[in-house]
Computed example of a mutant assay.
Amino acid sequence: MNLTIQGLHAVLTEQAATIQSIAQMSGAEKILEINPNAVRLENVQCDADILQAIQKLCFSAQLDVYHGPAQQLSEFKLVAMDMDSTLITIECIDEIADMQGLKPQVAEITEAAMRGEIEFQESLIRRVGLLKGLEASALQRVYDQRLQLSLGAEYMLQQVQQAGLKTLLVSGGFTFFTDRMKSRLNLDYTHANVLEIIDDKLTGKVVGTIVNADEKKRTVEKICTELGISTQQAIVMGDGANDLKMMGIAGLSVAFRAKPVVRAQANVALNFVGLDGILNLF
C-alpha cells in the first residue's frame, strides 16, 4: 500500500517536516515526488490508528492524503461525476433562486439535502416549487454569469479522455446545464432533471423521473452495462449525500469538497486540491 499526499503548493519544499513525519509514522520505504504538488510514500505499514493520525495531520496542514494500492488509470473505463459543487463550483438551483430573490430559502434546503437531513426528492420538489413563474431566460443568465468549472476539472477530463475513459455527468440538477456541459467538455453521457417550462416561464415542476440517489446509481449501472464493464471499473465523484449510492458501487469513489458524511465513506477525499488530484493516484 502507498500513501499519496498532495496540496495546492510545493509539497516537499513547503511541507518537508510534515512529509518526513508521515514517512516515519507509516514506515515508508521510499518518498517519490510525483510532481511539485504531490508525493507518494511507497510500501507503507499503516494500521487504522496510524492512518487516522496521518489523516488528521494532513487535514490540519491542508494536504489531501490517499491510502491505497498502486493502480493504473487503464484499470478504469468510466468517470462518473455529479455536477453541482463537484464538476462546477455552484449549486445551479440556488443561483436560479437568486434571480427570484429566494436564494437563502432555497440554499438552506439544498444544504440540508446534501448533508442527508432531508430526502433529496422531497427537497427538489420543494425548491423547484419556489421557482414558479420565473422567466426561463434566468437559466441562461446563471450559465453565462455564474457557472464556473471546479479547479482542475478541465485538465482532469482531458487526461482521462486521452486515456480512453468514457465520461458520465449524472446530476440532481437540470438538463439545461448538463446539456451545455456535455457539448462544452465533450462528455459522452449526461442525465439530469427536466424543468417544466410553459410560455417561457418555469411552472415550478419537474418533468419525468427525478434524478435522486437511486436514479444516480441506476444510471451508473446502466452505462456500465452498455459499455460491457463492471461498476468496479468506474471512478465516481460527488459531494453530497445523494451521491453516496452511486459512489458505493464504484471501484474508486472520490469525495470532492464534500460534506463530512460523504468524506467518511469515500475511498479518497479531495478537500484542498482540484479534481485533477485524482490523476496523482495512478
Score class of each variant (00 low, 15 high):
Glu135His: 14
Ala113Asp: 01
Met114Glu: 00
Gln159Asn: 09
Met83Ile: 13
Glu95Lys: 02
Ala138His: 09
Gly129Val: 13
Gln121Gly: 09
Lys103Thr: 03
Leu147Phe: 08
Leu149Ile: 05
Thr86Ile: 14
Ala136Asn: 11
Gln158Trp: 09
Glu135Ser: 14
Val128Met: 08
Gln140Phe: 14
Met83Arg: 07
Ile90Gln: 07
Arg146Ser: 12
Tyr155Ile: 09
Glu154Gln: 12
Leu87Arg: 12
Met156Thr: 06
Arg141His: 12
Asp84Tyr: 07
Ile93Lys: 00
Cys92Gln: 05
Leu124Lys: 03
Gln121Val: 08
Leu130Glu: 08
Gly133Ile: 13
Leu131Phe: 11
Ala136Asp: 14
Leu124Ala: 04
Ile93Ala: 04
Gly133Asp: 11
Glu119Ser: 06
Leu149Lys: 06
Glu95Ser: 04
Ser123Ala: 13
Val160Asp: 02
Arg141Pro: 13
Leu151Glu: 14
Asp82Leu: 11
Ser85Thr: 13
Leu130Val: 08
Met156Arg: 06
Thr110Trp: 00
Lys103Glu: 05
Ala112Pro: 02
Arg146Tyr: 11
Ile93His: 03
Leu157Cys: 02
Cys92Tyr: 05
Glu91Tyr: 04
Tyr143Cys: 14
Leu87His: 10
Ile118Ala: 01
Thr86Ala: 12
Ser150Ile: 07
Ala80Met: 14
Glu111Trp: 00
Pro104Phe: 04
Val79Lys: 11
Asp144Gly: 08
Gln148Thr: 10
Glu122Phe: 09
Pro104Arg: 05
Val142Trp: 06
Met99Asn: 06
Phe120Leu: 05
Ala112Met: 06
Ser123Gly: 13
Gln161Thr: 11
Glu95Leu: 03
Arg141Ile: 13
Thr110Lys: 00
Glu95Ala: 03
Leu87Trp: 10
Arg127Ile: 08
Gly129Phe: 12
Pro104His: 05
Thr86Gln: 14
Gln105Leu: 06
Asp84Pro: 07
Met83Gly: 07
Glu111Phe: 02
Glu122Pro: 03
Val128Ile: 13
Gly129Glu: 11
Ile109Gly: 00
Ser150Ala: 15
Gln100Ser: 15
Ala136Phe: 10
Leu124Glu: 01
Gly133Met: 10
Gln140Cys: 11
Glu111Ser: 04
Glu108Trp: 00
Gln100Glu: 10
Met81Arg: 12
Thr86Asn: 12
Leu157Gln: 02
Glu91Ala: 05
Glu95Asp: 09
Ile96Ser: 00
Ala97Ile: 03
Ser150Leu: 09
Met99Pro: 00
Arg146Asn: 10
Asp82Asn: 15
Leu157Ser: 01
Asp94Phe: 02
Val160Trp: 02
Leu134Trp: 07
Ala80Cys: 15
Gln158Lys: 15
Gln121Arg: 11
Leu147Ser: 07
Phe120Asn: 02
Asp144His: 12
Gln105Phe: 00
Thr89Phe: 10
Ser137Met: 12
Leu130Phe: 08
Val142Gly: 06
Glu119Phe: 04
Leu131Cys: 08
